[in-house]
Design a protein around this nucleic acid. Structure first.
Lengths: 351, 351
DNA sequence: TTCATGCTGAGGTACGTTGATCAGGAAGCG
DNA sequence: CGCTTCCTGATCAACGTACCTCAGCATGAA
């Protein structure tokens, strides 16, 4: 066993060690650590120096035990049939049951989709005294940004989930890099179509949500610089509703016979496959969509979809909780651990 | 705020509640819960029934605080220049420093690569009294299986990392599904080569490690059933050494002009790109490799590699620790959370 | 009957932290 | 000088669990 304690360890220092090193009492250390008043600046400095010197880190478990802390975390997400959002709901629900997290209490509410004022109303109704952390699937609009900033200003840690509001003061965005997702789709479609110049259709949900905008952006970046033989058509906006998507895409396919590829970057992908199968084209366009729903899985198997880009809902919900817990405790989190991966599924690697 | 506590919560029951419900004292509950003797079977049953009735779950944080528990987790992995393994080492080291996990003490040792007897010697030297959990990157051989089973029999929780020994009694395998990885590579190469029949070269490290065998298997499954116009050549075994890979692959490319794709499923990918650039072919074969090392990243950018399959080292190490902690505590873990993702990188979505 | 043995209850201390209270000291003020 | 005000130390009771001791009771064997 040739590991002569290759990596350092030893027992964790406690507040006792800090108190001893700073030559003050436990009470004073506690006052400094918990930001209570009644400590002379000079003494405070001495304590903080001692903390660094002995390498003290608060034992969060012990602290929480003592405080009887509960992390009340609230989720706000769009209502509607979007199976991705319903998946988040299920995931949150599953974390409330018997396998309930350490001291985490989850609650959840839904708001109308693609509706900034409705979301703002809901955010204003949140009482920072009754909630310790907030995760929100946001519509990107100035009034939403203001509502989020207001909650942050009142001391409530907030993370955005799935779709970001980058200009806001939210503490973190939990979700995939949507520009990269669009680039990935483009990279795949570009390679799939490398022998077949033509047009690419883009099916979006709405230009109002950030994730859709960013995916389109990334997609176009790559196609226009790397795959000049392909042309990206203007987006269809199907509001994530299968029927509307079906209708709009069917029209487009009928009018434009040179479509060789389709990128569906929102929800409502049932509409895509319906339009495709009904069109009865001689040669099917290469198709890349988002989110591995049961339906998408089936279409992948049957060869209607060629690739599905996916984000793991469970990972996102757990990540949101971890990040909020850290922010509530005033701890840093490990960014690398919180990177949400874009998964690529082909018919050959469906889990 | 329309969440009338949609999901249940309430305070956690404690041993006090159990004692009260079972009409016994705290001491007896404690004896039952911690498997100490001196409790009549009838009483034990009453306590266990009460545990279920009140839905008691041990507060692991409080228990660990009381026990002053330390989780001593030991890693065993192959030595050598393999940058993937060195990455694991770095990751383990980084978790020892200031950001040290809650009560986790990590140690690590290396053994000669592709050397079953050497690994067995190392495993036999491990004292289950000085270590609480073991993560091992294993060579797949009967003697290794026996060594692992021996440790498990002596009460040491063991997980395999990256490469599995499925017939052993290890508690869990932390790593990607390597058959699926091979299938993914095949799905990509098959689509990339859809207009270009020919041969596919496979560059492996060794037939002795399970992960390489499984990747080859998955690869072949897909090509032979879905892409009949392509033929998979016998694997080259380059022992993950760039020079040997270069030599063997150069020979193969020279002898076989009909190679349209390459799947490098082990390490030593420097050898692949060297052989490819030196060969100076009119039309470059489509190339898929494993692990996004700095070198692979560069070759992806420059267009020598078309896709890189990747597993996140940090996630694997953290997952191994989480799973071992759960097993040490005798708790179940969340399998969905521990699924290691296969990431697909193209030049367009490099992080 | 006597005594050992097994089971149970009662109570304590500890783990590291929080959040109190209380007393005493120093400093500043009039 | 005495007084208030601010800082600091000392001490304690929790939090939920683990682990220990000791006393008491019942049971069965000798």
């Amino acid at each position: 066993m040739n590991h002569p304690d290759k990596f350092g360890l030893g027992l964790r220092p406690t507040i006792h060690d800090v108190a001893h090193a700073a030559r003050v009492s436990l009470a004073t250390v506690d006052r400094v650590l918990n930001g209570r008043n009644g400590v002379r600046p000079a003494t405070r400095e001495r304590v903080l120096a001692a903390v660094k010197a002995v390498g003290y880190e608060r034992d969060v478990a012990a602290a929480n035990l003592s405080k009887r802390r509960e992390y009340r975390i609230h989720f706000v997400l769009p209502a509607g049939p979007n199976s991705f959002m319903r998946g988040i709901e299920d995931e949150v629900a599953s974390l409330c049951g018997p396998a309930r997290q350490d001291r985490v209490q989850l609650s959840l509410q839904t708001v109308p989709p693609f509706d900034a004022p409705g979301l703002v109303t809901a955010l204003h109704a949140i009482d920072p005294k009754r909630v310790d952390g907030l995760a929100v699937v946001a519509t990107d609009a100035p009034i939403v940004r203001e509502a989020i900033d207001g909650l942050v200003a009142r001391g409530l840690p907030v993370v955005t989930l799935v779709s970001d509001v980058p200009s806001s003061r939210r503490g973190h965005f939990v979700g995939i890099d949507n520009v990269t997702a669009g680039r990935t789709a483009a990279g795949l479609l570009g390679r799939f179509c490398h022998d077949r110049p033509g047009d690419l259709a883009v099916v979006a949900g709405s230009g109002l949500v950030r994730d859709h905008v960013e995916r389109r952006l990334g997609f176009e970046q790559v196609i226009r610089t790397e795959y000049r033989q392909l042309k990206v058509l203007p987006s269809i906006e199907g509001l994530d509703e299968p029927d509307l998507v079906d209708e709009l895409l069917s029209d487009l396919l009928a009018q434009n016979p040179s479509i060789v590829g389709i990128y569906s970057l929102g929800a409502g992908t049932r509409g895509v496959s319906r339009a495709l199968t009904r069109a009865g084209l001689a040669r099917r366009p290469w198709t890349v969509v988002h989110e591995l729903t049961p339906h998408a899985r089936q279409e992948l198997r049957s060869g209607v979809f060629d690739a599905v880009l996916h984000q793991d809902i469970g990972h996102e919900v757990r990540s949101a909780i971890r990040v909020l817990r850290a922010r509530i405790d005033g701890r840093p989190f490990v960014p690398a651990q919180e990177r949400i991966r874009i998964e690529v599924f082909l018919r050959d690697n469906i889990p």
